[in-house]
Design a protein around this nucleic acid. Structure first.
Lengths: 145, 145
DNA sequence: TTATAATGATACCAGATCGGTATCAATCAA
DNA sequence: TTGATTGATACCGATCTGGTATCATTATAA
């Protein structure tokens, strides 16, 4: 199945959660895990990767926690995906053309590149500000039940 | 890395090769493996999958071989990808919404579905007739060297 | 009838990835 | 000092990946 990993899906939930919090406030990994229904230890790992990608800022210690590093208007789905998955390649030949023995002559290559490019563009078009606006709720249970 | 498997790339080469042959002529797995630089045994496996997907027709025996089941104008990249990869899901939630505990309320879901749909549409837009036309050569070495 | 060449169907393998868990150290506020 | 947090690893079983190998089946041609 051509799909992102579950970890990437979780990462999107994490960023969305943060985007829904009041600006500047911190959330803890524990809170996010419970509210967004993600295994706690996985949130830790995801937070690490999002932090090294520069999407979030973390603070250790007693009153520590996690915050978006930028306003949600400037964080896109593409960034989250690539932070977790690495490049959106679609086919490896778009990233490492040398790996393909047919390469300079391959006519499929162009197609992979084109489709990959518009896929990336579409992922980049979605900001977490837009996603946050859609669902008014600040946590999944606020409206339900 | 978000990418198709190598087997899927190979499958596209196989179909492209067949699309470049004179209509109705048969190619053998061995020929395709050599000309398109794919491990022979892998071609066998790929041919099986493409055949059960209805994209190619196979004939056993002495003069056996492989042919496109339809004209190349009616075979798209999407079909090849889905024959090998299964559904183009982008995120599993687009295929099995029940798996996601956040589901009816998740605002990212729509985005995944939309982007997935246009990805599929773009893959479906590419026919192997178009790919065959681009590269005039009927085999990779015809022009080179 | 026999030999040969092709596909069909499996089974197997080593290595990588995936989803998840666990542990211990470092940091900071109270 | 205590407790709550993140950082960094290490580990686990299960599955996927890319590739190989084997034997049966089918059909042509000599």
């Amino acid at each position: 199945m051509l799909t992102i990993s579950r970890e990437t899906d979780y990462a999107a939930r994490v960023i969305l959660h943060l985007a829904l919090q009041p600006t500047g406030s911190r959330s803890t990994a524990r809170q996010i895990a419970e509210l967004r229904i993600i295994p706690r230890a996985l949130v830790r790992r995801i937070v690490t990767r999002l932090a090294t990608a520069g999407l979030i800022t973390t603070a250790r210690g007693g009153d520590g926690g996690i915050t978006l590093a930028r306003p949600p208007t400037e964080i896109t789905l593409l960034e989250v995906v690539e932070a977790l998955e690495g490049p959106v390649a679609l086919n490896i030949c778009t990233v490492e053309p040398n790996i393909c023995p047919l390469m300079p002559a391959c006519t499929v290559h162009e197609a992979w590149v084109d489709i990959r490019d518009t896929l990336r563009a579409n992922l980049a078009r979605i900001t977490f500000a837009a996603l946050a606006q859609k669902g008014g709720a600040s946590s999944p249970d606020t409206t339900a039940r």
